[in-house]
Amino acid sequence: MATSATLIESEKPDTITVAYEHPWTVRVAHWLNAVAVFVLITSGLRIFRAFPSFGPKIPQQNFWVPPPGITLGGWLGGALQWHFTFMWIFAGSGLMYVIYQVVTGHWRQVLFLPRDIPGVWPMARHYFLFGKKPAIEAAYNPLQKLAYTSTIFFGAMSFLTGLVLYKPAQFWWLTWMLGGFHLARIWHFAAMCGFVAFIPGHLIMVLLHGWNNFYSMITGWKRDPEYLE
C-alpha cells in the first residue's frame, strides 16, 4: 500500500490530487438556496416592519423594529413581491437537496443523529476555544452535522409556518397542527433567527478553511483534500 502510493507520487511529480466533493445537484441547490435565504430574510424583515409585534393590533406593542438598512423591497408591497417570488426558489432548491440526499443515501453522512451528540463539544471546543482537533472520522464532523441538519430543520419550519401565514384558510389543518396563526408567525420568525444564527458561523468556517475549500462548492472538485495528505 505504502509502496505503491510512494511509487505513484514519484512517477507523477507534476500532478495535483483533486477530489469530487460536491455533486452538481448539491452545488446548484446550495447557491440557489443561499440567495433565496438572503432575499427572504431581508424582505421578511421589511414585512415584519409593517407590524413589528406578535401581540394584538390594539394596543400595539412593538417587539423590534428592523432598521430599513437591513431590509429589502423598500416598502411592504415591494418586500412581499420579493418574498412571494423567492419562496418558490427557496422551497424548490430545498426540496431538490433533500430529495438528492434521500435518493443517493448520502443523508447518512450529514444527518445529525443522537450518536453524534458526544462529538459536538470536542469539535466546538476545537473551533471556539482552540482545543485539540479531534480525529476526523467521517465526511462530516458532528458539529457540521448538527449545523447542516439544523438548516434543514429551520428550512422545513420556515416553509410550513410560511404556508400557514400565507394560506391559513386553505391549510386549516396545518394551521391547527402548528398551534394557530399567531404561533405560526412566531415560529416563522424563530426559524429566521435560526438561519441568522447559522450563517455567521458558516461564513467564518468558510473563511477559515480558505479558498480551496470554498472553490469546491463552485466546481465540485477540491484540490489537495486534507484527508488524503
Partner: peptide, 15 residues
C-alpha cells in the same frame, strides 16, 4: 487511497 471518507472520487490530474 483514492477515495475520500465519504467515497468521493479522487483523481490525480495535471494542472
Amino acid at each position: 487511497a483514492r477515495s475520500g471518507p465519504a467515497g468521493e472520487e479522487v483523481r490525480d490530474v495535471t494542472s
